[in-house]
Design a protein around this nucleic acid. Structure first.
Lengths: 196, 196
DNA sequence: CTAACAATTAATAGTTACTAATAATAGGTA
DNA sequence: TACCTATTATTAGTAACTATTAATTGTTAG
């Protein structure tokens, strides 16, 4: 019974994972995968409160069918729009958040979009051919929801040789939602022309 | 016959429109909407080559499903591919870097792509409905160039209530290029059952 | 007027992927 | 031995179909 029980729990854990990764798996397919009967799989699903395949598919479909309209964002749009910049000193960028940047369930913007905004702004204010992020400390203070417009302000706080300390503050409606401190290294690989 | 014919064509045009706008309409619902028999609706669908509701839903779902084999570039370019996961414990994801993720001048992958890989992996191993990044400490150790494949390993290092400390290590060719420590908070908006 | 034809509806059998309930079986444990 | 858990089997019923054949209705050309 002990061994059986453990097996059962382990099996259910794996079934859950499989379904999470591939909601299109029917009970029959799962039964074949795990070499258990269809009935056992069903019992497992019931015990875990996982709905049948067709309902799972409908859920997945609904989550996105409404969303789409707005297609894939161009990568550069992740960066936001540079609205002001003083090379070597500071810069401001804004990003209008859209549905595709958010978790479907909650409408909360995924953290890496905010980091992308901060990071690209920080890099773009460095007055060098090449700038690379070395270390970053990020703090997400308040969740940001789809539709909110983010304003990022970056400032070079310190400079030692080719090492810059840049602080970035992101606000939405005058409320700070994110702060970050980035250590960025600059390199002047070859000839340095005027500017960008 | 002329009038009938026109009606038929008109009806089919409208059915097509309805289905386009709402792929979840079954033949029965369409029959009710148009006040024709289910059989007529079916014939119309067949004549127009429109698949049945369930297939339409599957199509919609697959277009955006994370688990989908045929991955939509946009999303996967950012998130990478989950290749193993043990909910609540650890996970592995890989990301094949491409040109569009890099700076043109140097071919070095922009840091936020690496963070995105790490961050999404960290979030996906949290066994909760909603997980949000709160704090992050990142260290970029070696530049990554276009074409390199990144392997990210995340592990829950600590858990206190709904606060998780997740460490992520990203390697390329067995060389560590990035490490990060993320503090993630989980939320169960709709509590169902307790587990584990 | 009627045979022909299109459009529509009905009827029937078979499919998939289930739910829900009940029963049977194997392998332990107390 | 009686009980218990896990597993498997069986049966009836559901939605939403496919595929086929047949019946009905309406129009119209000869």
């Amino acid at each position: 019974m002990m061994i059986q029980n453990l097996n059962k729990i382990e099996r259910q854990r794996r079934i859950k994972e499989y379904i999470l990764r591939d909601p299109f798996l029917s009970d029959k397919k799962l039964a074949e995968l795990f070499n258990f009967s269809v009935q056992t799989i069903r019992l497992d699903r019931l015990e875990m409160g996982i709905p049948e395949m067709r309902k799972r598919i409908i859920k997945v479909a609904k989550e996105t069918s409404l969303a789409d309209q707005v297609k894939s964002l161009k990568r550069d749009e992740i960066i936001g729009e540079l609205i002001d910049i003083e090379l070597g000193k500071s810069g401001i960028a804004i990003l209008k958040t859209v549905k595709s940047m958010a978790f479907n369930r909650t409408g909360i913007i995924r953290s890496h979009y905010i980091f992308s905004l901060a990071d690209s702004l920080a890099i773009s204010i460095i007055d060098a051919k090449v700038a690379l992020t070395g270390i970053a400390r990020l703090r997400y203070k308040i969740p940001v929801y789809t539709g909110q417009t983010l304003v990022a302000k970056a400032r070079v706080a310190q400079k030692k040789g080719n090492k810059y300390l840049v602080s970035v503050h992101v606000k939405s409606n005058h409320e700070e939602v994110f702060t970050g401190k980035l250590v960025i290294f600059s390199f002047n690989d070859k000839v340095k022309k005027k500017e960008v």
